[in-house]
Design a protein around this nucleic acid. Structure first.
Lengths: 338, 338
DNA sequence: ATGTGATGCGTAAACGTTTGCGTAAAGAGC
DNA sequence: GCTCTTTACGCAAACGTTTACGCATCACAT
């Protein structure tokens, strides 16, 4: 057997002339250790480049120092930015990030159902997918702390934007510049489910139209993504009453819509205004008007909430709602009639 | 203290009437257990929904079941796709992914230097950043298995594309359609370092030109990204001899180059051909000719290599090189002179 | 009958922490 | 001076595995 080259608490204890128990307490900042010895221990630990063994710690009732992040996709702008925000914040707090990419709801279900989360992590951050009732119940019964991004699920702390407001900002812009026939392209996931964010955006769409006394039956439903956007715009163009402006669930959908318009020879914004949500990088490239949401910042906020909760403090707010705002570019203009 | 609701080996042992040791051996498929009892134990474990505690396992000399993935950025197409590939493959093998996003080389250095990797993970996958000599040495001396993506570092198994060949494919295309004055936009990282991939692409660029007997002093060096691409094209346009075609380090750089051209009123491809590498999603949107590389597949391949190594098998190949191929779109055409 | 290897399994000692309990010493109140 | 807390620390028992060792048992050849 190769000699263990890793230093453990016993080494630190020996070096400081105290017991292992005292080292444990000192290093975790527990009370019951004089400031003087705590300092000595801390220094010794630094000198030895000691790092705690998460295994042993967890095994004897401590924390794992790990947080699970569950996303439906990684290779999508939104999720990877969220993830970046989370990772940054958690690493700053010396927590490790365990990544689970669970595309299908059945995978998520079995993950929450039978996986021994409590054995692996101290907390779970669930990003932007619909939590089913059983999932929620399951999470509540195991004693991991949970934070949800992009949705509000039961009593769990959450971080999100106000999707309904964002939709109102987008549609409000279209109304202000004179549009009266406004369409929307909404999205469903591959399993045919509407996500909370989409539902709220549709609600905001309808509410904004209602406030302005406008008709609102002009909605197309497509799978999320660029191709969905293409299809959605095709659907809207084939209507009896073609709208003069379209509010898209998100920028990627809007980019698809723009492609269809280009192919159909409809000039943007002269013949059709298009607006999205996100401020995705390609929105700038495509000169797309949009409602910007802070993405990385949502991840970071969730990370901070987790850190607070794990260190026993109550976070400042249990439901963080970050602001969105309109970014006007070249894809929206007054309707042709005016 | 809340009663432990998690099943452990003792429970399985009791249920089957064997010792804990036997359960341990049976569940890991070690020899020394009759097939009959192994089956009984397996069934009991399933019935109890037993899952091993990674902490205890690691603590007593076993594996952690975790793999660290180190990337310089997450919120970039390339890395998030790689990550998706890795995650998918590792999850299939019941390994957990620990994500570390280390942007600065100093962070990476201290990560490899003082982090107790052996305490946390069984293996490390390093994605596409330059490993310094000390880092390499450090990794070698701790007994974690290492796999490198997008570079070849020492004796470590690696997964990558042939960057030089990819460059040759791109430049070869430009030469074949008649270009003789070809420029390149290469990239450096924020710390002023050239990455292995870039160096190889430059080499391929020069080699392809040399093979065709062409001049090759037309290179611009910029920071990676869209803005870098814009700047790079500005530099090339301000040359005494403006090239008729430009090979860009990657698609995102090429997109920047296209923006500068549009602003400068240079028609593409009539006035300038542009080609990139990657086949980034926006390459299709921007109608950009490019050399496609399999990105998610590189991650998946690396994941498979790790799985092989951790289960004690030697992987099929220690240096996996995945193929690239030309994707011709509308951003390249014969030069104006012809 | 005896010896010789396998084979199948149990015993018990790690692994490196956390934590309840015990205890000595110091300080506080009278 | 004597209790009564409080503080600072040590002891030792968990936590749930892996694994070196040891002991039967059995097949097979002597």
């Amino acid at each position: 057997m190769i000699p263990k080259q890793s230093v453990n608490m016993a080494d630190v204890a020996r070096r400081t002339g105290v017991s292992i128990a005292t080292v444990s307490r000192a290093l975790r900042g527990e009370r019951g250790v004089s400031e003087a010895t705590r300092l000595r221990i801390q220094r010794a630990a630094d000198e030895l480049a000691y790092v705690i063994s998460p295994e042993a710690s967890k095994l004897s009732g401590g924390a794992t120092g790990r947080v699970a992040v569950v996303v439906p996709w990684i290779d999508a702008w939104f999720y990877s930015r969220i993830l970046a925000g989370i990772e940054h914040e958690l690493r700053a707090a010396d927590l490790d990030v365990l990544l689970y990419c669970l595309e299908e709801s059945s995978q998520r279900e079995s993950f929450f159902e039978r996986l021994p989360l409590r054995r692996k992590v101290d907390a779970v951050i669930a990003v932007a997918f619909p939590l089913t009732g059983p999932e929620r119940a399951r999470l509540e019964e195991m004693d991991v702390t949970v934070v949800v991004i992009g949705a509000h699920a039961g009593e769990f702390p959450s971080v999100r934007i106000d999707d309904e407001l964002a939709a109102r900002q987008a549609v409000g812009h279209l109304i202000r510049i004179g549009h009266t026939r406004i369409g929307m392209i909404r999205t469903v996931d591959p399993e045919g489910q509407y996500w909370e964010g989409d539902i709220a955006r549709v609600a905001g769409f309808h509410a904004a139209l209602a406030d302005a006394g406008l008709d609102d039956d002009c909605t197309a439903t497509v799978p999320w993504g660029i191709e969905g956007g293409e299809r959605g715009m095709e659907l809207l163009l084939s209507r009896a009453e073609v709208p003069t402006a379209v509010f898209c669930h998100s920028d990627e959908v809007a980019v698809g819509a723009l492609r269809t318009l280009r192919r159909a020879g409809v000039p943007v914004p002269a013949g059709m205004s298009v607006i999205g949500i996100d401020d995705h990088p390609t929105a700038e490239l495509a000169d797309l008007t949009t409602v910007r949401q802070p993405v990385g910042e949502q991840g970071a906020a969730a990370g901070r909430v987790v850190v607070e909760l794990l260190s026993g403090r109550e976070p400042a707010e249990r439901a963080v709602v970050l602001p969105t705002h309109l970014v006007v570019r070249g894809s929206t203009a007054r309707p042709p009639e005016l």
